[in-house]
């Protein structure tokens, strides 16, 4: 029997009247999870909890005995775990996704290895060096494994490295920091989305898009309130480039979420611009901004609905 979604049942019940027993029967047989789904879920739940708790227990045990464990054993254990997970992923006959999970775990363990190495040898490296090394050393694995959660971890590492570089090494102004962060993430998004072999999933695409538009908005709003210099002009150029390319892509792929995000971003940008121009001269400016936000939201929705009609009419 085809699975029924709750919203479909809701629509049917809103147009007709049925008894509680009838609706209960439909919910139980066609909407809610069936016994075989429960079995799979509970198996995964108990297995994940079992593995997670046992692993955490082992980690805590190592943490307790950390001072008395010889350095050779510390480094050796982590290296053994990395080699074991890679070997298991290569030789075991398991589902491809499980292999990718094992390789993701080994990428995370590389970071753990570097951290332990730094602690033992007291290298004195700052956090930026640690994250840079971790990012570089797993780059090839990330490309080969081609697993969306691993791409997500890799992008987090790149962002952390970049952020720590700006803070600990370069000491750039805020506008320059945001320019670099926004540009790198935007280029990463383009590379991941348009490379055919990388099957970028919806959730990662949505997260990345939201992040890039958010970063560019924060960057340009920060630039508006700073003393104007060349980096602020670059922020503006980057912001409008991202905005126009987002809208172009959204119209091409009929993606309403991107249009909603760009609409919200524009509302924030215009509000910041008004605040800067008026220089906070009156508390009444805030009620004006509030109504601008309301009107801007309404306009964004009108635009989306108009586009939606065009797209559906086109089909």
């Amino acid at each position: 029997m085809e699975k029924l979604k709750d919203r479909v049942l809701f629509k049917i019940c809103s147009e007709n009247s049925f008894s509680k027993n009838e609706i209960q029967g439909v919910l139980k047989n066609q909407v809610y999870q069936q016994p075989k789904d429960w079995k799979v879920f509970l198996e995964y739940l108990f297995l994940s909890l079992g593995v997670g708790f046992t692993t955490a227990g082992v980690v805590f045990f190592f943490a307790f005995n950390w001072d008395i464990i010889p350095d050779f054993v510390k480094l050796g254990t982590i290296q053994l775990l990395i080699i074991s997970s890679i070997t298991a992923a290569y030789f075991l006959k398991i589902k491809p996704n499980f292999k990718k999970i094992l390789l993701t775990a080994s990428c995370v363990l590389v970071g753990v290895l570097f951290a332990v190495f730094g602690q033992i040898y007291q290298t004195g490296a700052n956090a930026y060096d640690f994250f840079l090394g971790w990012t570089i050393f797993i780059s090839l694995w990330v490309i080969v494994v081609n697993f969306n959660p691993l791409w997500c971890i890799y992008l987090v590492l790149i962002n952390t490295t970049l952020f720590l570089y700006t803070e600990q090494v370069a000491n750039w102004e805020i506008a320059t920091c945001f320019n670099w962060l926004t540009t790198c993430n935007f280029l990463a998004l383009i590379a991941l989305h348009f490379t055919p072999k990388i099957n970028l999933s919806n959730w990662l695409f949505n997260i990345l898009t939201t992040y890039v538009i958010g970063l560019s908005s924060i960057g340009v709003i920060g630039a508006i309130f700073e003393n104007w210099h060349i980096a602020c002009s670059i922020s503006l150029i980057i912001y409008f480039s991202i905005l126009f390319s987002s809208i172009w892509h959204a119209i091409k792929t009929q993606n309403k979420l991107i249009i909603a995000l760009t609409g919200l971003s524009l509302i924030c940008f215009i509000s910041a611009l008004i605040l800067k121009i008026t220089d906070f001269f009156d508390i009444g400016i805030f009620i004006l901004l509030s109504f601008i936000a309301v009107i801007g939201t309404a306009i964004t929705i009108q635009v989306i609905q108009k586009l939606d009609k065009q797209w559906n009419h086109g089909k």
Partner: peptide, 11 residues
């Protein structure tokens, strides 16, 4: 550590 491992084994 003992609590976590025993919970894990129970699961």
């Amino acid at each position: 550590s003992a609590l976590l491992m025993s919970s894990g084994i129970l699961f």
